[in-house]
Computed example of a mutant assay.
Amino acid sequence: MERGIEPEVRMVGITYTEITLLNAGDVSNARRGIIKAAEIRKTTVRALVDTGAATLVINEAMRQKLGLGIESVGDVTLADGETEECQFTEPVKVCWKNRSTSCEAMVMVHGDEVLLGAIPMEAMDLTVNPARQEVTGAHGDRVLLLAK
């Protein structure tokens, strides 16, 4: 290998996708005319797709940026088997391309990236293709939800 040229590193099984997070209360208030649409607190982030995580996971800085209140506190078992007390926020609107859902977010004190978990992915009818490292619609471009 030529000196100074790094080999391409591909981390198989790790998938990221771009999502937009909005304060769901702000979205409702804008719809009602209480605030202007431009006042909705939102951010677009590169999220780690984590089907082992139940819901959306954010850190404290992201919670504050979106202006989300805390609705509850509970114990959570982490991937390494440790248990940690975490806060859960009021609803966050999660948008991926032409799809969206609202869910609570778990706040990880030591977290440094957003995790997109199984519940919001299922609600938006999304699946992950680890071989191609991409998120796609489980049923193509059309959302298909089962109601039985």
Rank of each mutant, 00 (worst) to 15 (best):
Q87P: 10
K65T: 14
L144W: 09
E60S: 13
G25M: 12
D50L: 09
L21P: 05
S72N: 10
I19S: 00
K97V: 08
V9N: 01
L146C: 07
D50F: 07
C86D: 04
H139V: 00
P91F: 04
T15H: 03
C103Q: 04
Y16L: 04
S100C: 12
V143R: 11
E6Y: 06
A105N: 08
M106D: 02
Q133D: 04
G4D: 08
L116R: 01
D112V: 13
H110Y: 12
R99H: 02
D125R: 01
D26M: 03
K36C: 01
L115H: 07
E8Q: 13
E85C: 02
C86E: 11
V12Q: 15
D80T: 06
C86I: 14
R32A: 15
T136M: 14
E122S: 14
T20A: 12
T89A: 05
V57H: 12
R10Q: 13
E39M: 10
E90T: 15
P91K: 09
V94Y: 04
Q64P: 02
I19L: 01
A147P: 00
A105L: 11
E18D: 13
G67T: 02
V73C: 09
E8N: 12
T55F: 06
A30H: 04
T101S: 05
V9H: 05
M106S: 07
T136Y: 02
P91W: 04
N98V: 04
C86H: 15
L116D: 03
T89K: 05
I40Q: 02
